[in-house]
């Protein structure tokens, strides 16, 4: 159950670990905890740790606020735990036996703990949508791809589904390109279109939070620009957490940026501050391109 993404990650990690001592192994500055936010939150990650089935602790005591209807970016070198953290937010790790969460992911304003024992992963995923690194449309028509999340929620009325599908495709800025071939196969679209279709699929059921894991890493610059524009527009109506390798991208689209390093959240803050005036030496090294 390990996809190629994970195998890639493992080799990259090895490289990072091998290179690391050359620079600043002496740097033992502890992580800087995020300050208090004045803007309304959609979720709060508190003292969160994550352990893979083999016992490896991929996330270490992370605290992080997620602002309501803002874009939060997670950056950091390969293998630092960005995807692991993101996938914790919709309980994807529950799909594979032996994984373990510790701490709290509190959804605001209800205060429900998403990783608590009383919370059902399926319900969590109904509230927190996700878009993956590689576009993964279902082997169905374009229409049925977007409708899938509505059908899961038991919506049967054709007119309602029609409306929601159109609405989601418009929000994902792909309506004009597909409106004449809604009944065509999703695989006939280009990679960039497929990714926007996947975003539409995630948006259709109106999730409270949308998670994006390196959504543009498989796309060309033009398709990437479209998705970036889209993320910014969407942040007016939905809370977004985006993982990216691309620092310019984080700087362009996000309001808050979190920098992770070897499972720890070293620094969190306003995107502009992180990129122009980082406080943690590791953040500075990373954004000035000294490693990662």
């Amino acid at each position: 159950m390990v996809d190629d993404n994970m195998t890639l990650t493992k080799t990259n990690t090895a490289k990072v670990k091998a290179v690391e001592p050359d620079f600043d192994d002496e740097d033992t500055t502890p992580p800087i905890k995020p300050g208090k936010e004045r803007e309304p939150l959609r979720a709060r990650i508190e003292d969160f740790s994550f352990f893979y089935a083999d016992g490896f602790q991929a996330i270490k005591n992370v605290d992080m606020p997620i602002l309501d209807r803002k874009v939060t970016a997670i950056i950091g070198p390969s293998g630092c735990g960005k995807s692991t953290l993101l996938r914790s937010l919709n309980r994807m790790h529950d799909l594979y036996p032996g994984n373990r969460y510790e701490g709290r992911v509190i959804l605001e304003p209800e205060g429900e703990n998403l990783i608590g024992p009383e919370s059902d992963p399926v319900i969590v995923r109904l509230r927190v949508g996700m878009v993956f690194q590689k576009p993964n449309p279902f082997p169905k028509t374009i229409y049925e791809n977007v409708a899938a999340g509505l059908r899961v929620r038991g919506i049967k009325k054709r007119s309602m589904i029609d409306e929601a599908v159109e609405n989601a495709l418009r929000r994902a800025a792909i309506w004009d390109e597909v409106k004449d071939k809604l009944n065509g196969s999703a695989y006939d679209l280009s990679g960039g279109q497929q990714q926007r279709l996947c975003i539409a699929r995630g948006l259709a059921p109106n999730p409270e939070i949308l998670l994006l894991d390196e959504p543009t890493s498989a796309l060309d610059p033009i398709a990437t620009a479209k998705v970036e524009d889209l993320v910014q527009e969407l942040s007016e109506s939905v809370t977004i957490v985006i993982v990216t390798h691309n620092m310019q991208q984080a700087a362009r689209v996000s309001h808050r940026t979190a920098f992770m390093y070897m499972g720890e959240m070293m620094e969190f803050g306003e995107t502009q501050t992180i990129f122009t005036n980082p406080k943690h030496p590791r953040t500075e090294n990373y954004i000035t391109g000294r490693y990662g």
Binding site: D3, L95, L126, N136, P137, F138, P139, V152, R153, G202
Partner: peptide, 29 residues
């Protein structure tokens, strides 16, 4: 059928049997 498709289904809030009938069977059709 690649796991990425199953995960796409789970991410939409599908239960296991829904992933089997709505994603895996059409994917392996």
């Amino acid at each position: 059928v690649p796991n990425s498709l199953r995960e796409g289904g789970y991410a939409l809030g599908m239960a296991k049997w829904q992933v089997a009938t709505r994603i895996v069977i059409p994917g392996a059709f």
